[in-house]
Design a binder for these strands. Structure first.
Length: 817
RNA sequence: GCCGGGGUGUCGGAACCGGUAGACGAGCCUGACUCAAAAUCAGGUGGGGGAAACCCCGUGCGGGUUCGACUCCCGCCCCCGGCACCA
């Protein structure tokens, strides 16, 4: 008996050797074709979670596979190092965010190394490094120059728990809570910095240049929420010169307007409200301001509102309609005002029912005889009650009314988006300072490029006051105006959203130490764009939208010559606890990767994570399931290292052709599976192959060139999945270092084809017999064999055969009526 | 409500350009080894009927197309995820 598989010794040994030999360093240029494989970089929260392994171990296998296929693979790693948890640790435990973050990074580096992944550590990026965030500031200034970064007073979402504003994308769910801490957000009117992502809204809807999951594309589409319609203006009766605009996607229904609605916060409400209605309107506005609380309390969202005592004029027919305020109209979308067309909008319908407003049908449903509607009719139909447009099909009416409004100058076609500009100001310390100075005489002045980076001072005080700690740092805040030299200038004390860091980190990996520019364009020409990106789905409308936006801006700045940052995207699933629940410390179901590695070795943990389920599904961690993978690796070890028991099974015959066939067929399967990230079936194929080789061992076929070919292929195929045991067995069998620099095995399609097949014989679609036959059996021969089959004849029982279907090499179906 | 994904043994799953349903692994059962257990190895394992040969049923439900349907079409049910008064 040879020695047994003991991963603990061999894994560290090889990890050290690979690193010393710079085995995975990707050169800036290379004659080989490049492959940029990027996995979302981790946040240094403290300890590596099994979820990190689930995201990274299969990525590593895929990157290793590409490398063996002859690509120069860039597989970088870094840390998303700015963010709230570091600052909260400072407030709660008095540790400086920098110390907290760098300690965590140091610990995680060690844990990540234990995975045996093929990262190029020489390109590591840490975003809280001034050498990194300097370029956040630089990009910001470029955007400011182009009008893509601007400051505005706007109602913004504020998290009272985290004491900062949030981007719209960071507010989630029905109750509009902070995506980080789950606290309901409140609205505040603040001067904040925005990036003009809406300028790219239409281009962001174009996914034709990227191969991304349908799910993500749909999420982004919905998030951008493009809708085409008409914006037109309603004069207010008895208020000369006063009017307000409404946006509608249904100008064809304008004659059906029987009321109009303003959002409670609409700037015209106060002015238009009649004195006798004021008290009621004020009460309603107060209620609406607290709407998020009330909504959660009411079981049913009642559509309510208040008449303000004024009338708007329908510009198409001059009819006056009452104006209401109602909180189902949002100030943040369109113009904050709508036409109320109850016959053709369900919300307006319910509102009209409640307040006894007329419901006027202007698009007749097919066969409509003037009866009352049960609910709003939303489909197309024939225009009625619409003056000169009567009788038109409603889609044509849509265009004609839009034309008429434009001709008269009361309205115009336009497009509205749900997408808002990206609010990037954060009232927190641990982020990139926004490089802006406010001067009493010059106004808003950008920090000159040569003064970058604006360093984040180390000695700030952390107080959860709701204002940026930098505001209280006199040395930081007080500054000379770079334009006029005046003393009365102050720095912006808010910091940037950390999603800015991750919007362009893929570029920094190309030249992480470049002092003169965000990345070297020469290196970029070789490596960009990212060929494959992998990560969780949770960033679908945040990071993944922002980074597309960022790249388009970089293109318009002349920094890159392509439109999309990442050509292919894959979203892996989530590992759950053994109880099927999301892992959490409070539930006590957290699987610690370090502990698993100590018990089984990194290869087993990697292998199990890939074998457990399809990568995009994730699922519960099964403590028994990992045993199966561990046993398999033991079997592989024994298969390769145990001396062959000569002639012990000389009676058992497996032909050389069969051995070679199984080898080549397995190479084919594993290659194809790896190309599609089907790690689970790839490993299943390798297990099958191992089991097969165990049966061959000891038989006459268990030695010689065909056997050597099989073992060699097995080890090469193992290399991406379980790199340490593969390297060890490769060395133990006298093969030259390193297995990870070998070419991926090729298969011969001829050999991959089976020599004999099981021909299935059916009668009327039911399997009645199975016959071993040559795989290139002719249709006639197959047909003859089927009809001669004893079992078939018995089932036929003399009935005449009406048809015989032959699928070459697969089956024969004998049809009787 | 809308959008996306999915319902297959005891469990995770495989097959899905229509052609042997249940690969691989887990669990369970039997046997070998052992004083015994663990580990390891060998065999079995969808349900029902039968002594056996073999037969019937079976991929959420109901229809359909087809020589043949887990796979395609129509109509439902259920589960997971996302968005949610977007005019």
């Amino acid at each position: 008996m040879a020695d047994r598989y003991a991963p603990q010794g061999i894994e560290q040994k090889w990890q050290a050797r690979w690193e010393a030999d710079r085995l995975y360093h990707a050169p800036d240029f290379d004659p080989r074709p490049k492959y940029y494989f990027l996995t979302m970089y981790p946040y240094p929260s403290g300890d590596l979670h099994i979820g990190h392994w689930y995201a990274m171990a299969p990525s590593d296998a895929a990157a290793r596979f590409k490398r063996m296929q002859g690509y120069n693979v860039l597989f970088p790693i870094g840390f998303d190092a700015f963010g709230l948890p570091a600052e909260n640790a400072a407030i709660q435990h008095g540790i400086h965010p920098y110390t907290w973050t760098m300690d965590n990074i140091e610990r995680m580096r060690g844990q990540l190394r234990s995975m045996g992944a093929s990262w190029d550590w020489e390109r590591e990026v840490v975003t809280c490094d001034p050498g990194y965030y300097k370029w956040n500031q630089w990009f910001f200034l470029k955007m400011y120059e182009r009008g893509l970064a601007y400051r505005a007073l706007a109602p913004v979402d504020w998290c009272p728990q985290d004491n900062t504003t949030l981007a719209r994308e960071q507010v989630v769910g029905e109750n509009r809570v902070c995506e980080r801490c789950g606290t309901p957000v409140v609205k505040k009117n603040l001067e904040q910095w925005f990036l003009k992502i809406t300028a790219y809204a239409d281009e962001l809807l174009d996914f034709s240049k990227i191969d991304w999951p349908e799910r993500v594309k749909v999420l982004q589409q919905n998030w951008i929420g493009r809708s085409g319609g008409v914006e037109f203006s309603l004069p207010v009766r008895d208020h000369p010169g006063r009017s307000f605009a409404v946006f509608t996607t249904r100008p064809d229904t304008v004659y059906g307007m029987t009321f109009a609605v303003l959002a409670p916060e609409h700037p015209l409400v106060d002015e238009l409200t009649a004195p006798e209605r004021r008290a009621e309107v004020e009460a309603y506005k107060f209620k609406a301001a607290r709407a998020s609380d009330i909504e959660r309390l009411s079981t049913e969202k009642e559509r309510d509102g208040v008449f303000i005592g004024a009338y708007a004029i329908n510009p198409m027919n001059g009819a006056p309609v009452p104006i209401f305020v109602a909180d189902y109209v949002l100030l943040s979308y369109g113009t904050g005002a709508i036409q109320g067309v109850p016959a053709h909008d369900q919300r307006d319908f319910e509102f009209a029912r409640r307040y006894g407003l007329p419901i006027r049908v202007v698009v007749a449903p097919p066969g409509w005889r003037g009866e009352e509607l049960e609910r709003a009719y939303l489909e197309e139909g024939t225009m009625v009650n619409s003056g000169p447009f009567d009788g038109l099909p409603s889609p044509e009416g849509w265009q004609r009314i839009a034309d008429e409004m434009e001709r008269r100058g009361v309205g115009r076609r336009m497009v509205n988006y749900r997408l808002h500009d990206w609010l990037i100001s954060r009232q927190r310390y641990w982020g990139t300072p926004i490089p802006i100075i406010y001067c009493q005489t010059c106004g808003t002045v950008p920090v000159p490029e040569e003064d970058l980076p604006v360093l984040l001072p180390h000695d700030a005080e952390f107080r959860p006051t709701g204002e940026s700690p930098l505001k209280y740092h006199e040395g930081f805040r007080r500054v000379r105006c770079p334009r006029c030299g005046g003393e009365d200038a102050e720095r912006e004390t808010d910091t940037m959203d950390t999603f800015i860091d991750s919007s362009w980190y893929q570029y920094r990996y190309l030249s992480p130490h470049d002092q003169a520019r965000p990345f070297d364009p020469q290196v970029g020409r070789y490596w960009l764009p990212v060929d494959q990106y992998t990560g969780g789905i949770e960033h679908a409308v945040m990071h993944l939208l922002y980074t597309r936006f960022w790249t388009k801006v970089m293109r318009d700045l002349g920094l890159v010559d392509f439109d999309e940052p990442m050509l292919r995207l894959y979203n892996q699933g989530i590992v759950l606890g053994p109880d099927g629940q999301r892992m959490s410390k409070s539930r006590g179901n957290v699987v610690d990767p370090d502990e698993q590695v100590r018990q089984y070795g990194a290869d087993t943990v990697r292998g199990y994570l890939m074998f457990m389920r399809p990568w995009d599904e994730g699922g519960p961690w099964d403590p028994k399931g990992i045993e199966g993978v561990h046993r398999w690796l033991h079997r592989v070890w024994a298969l390769v290292t145990d001396p062959v028991p000569q002639g012990t099974r000389a009676d058992a015959r497996i032909s050389l052709r069969e051995l070679r066939h199984r080898t080549h067929a397995t190479v084919k399967r594993v290659t194809e599976d790896l190309e599609h990230f089907r790690f689970n079936t790839a490993i299943a194929a390798l297990m099958e192959f191992t089991n097969f080789l165990q049966n061959v061992k000891g038989t006459p076929s268990g030695s010689g060139p065909a056997w050597e070919e099989a073992i060699r292929a097995l080890l090469l195929m193992l290399a991406p999945f379980v790199p340490h045991i593969a390297e060890e067995l490769w060395a133990k069998t006298g093969r030259p270092y390193s297995i990870h620099q070998q070419a991926w095995p090729q298969y011969d399609p001829e050999l991959a084809r089976a020599e004999t097949v099981t021909l299935v014989i059916q009668v009327n679609g039911k399997v009645r017999d199975r016959i071993q036959a040559s795989s290139d059996i002719s249709a006639e021969e197959a047909r003859r064999l089927a009809l001669e089959s004893e079992r078939v004849r018995r089932v036929l029982d003399g009935r005449p055969v009406s048809d015989v279907i032959v699928v070459p090499g697969r089956l024969v179906n004998v049809v009787v009526r």
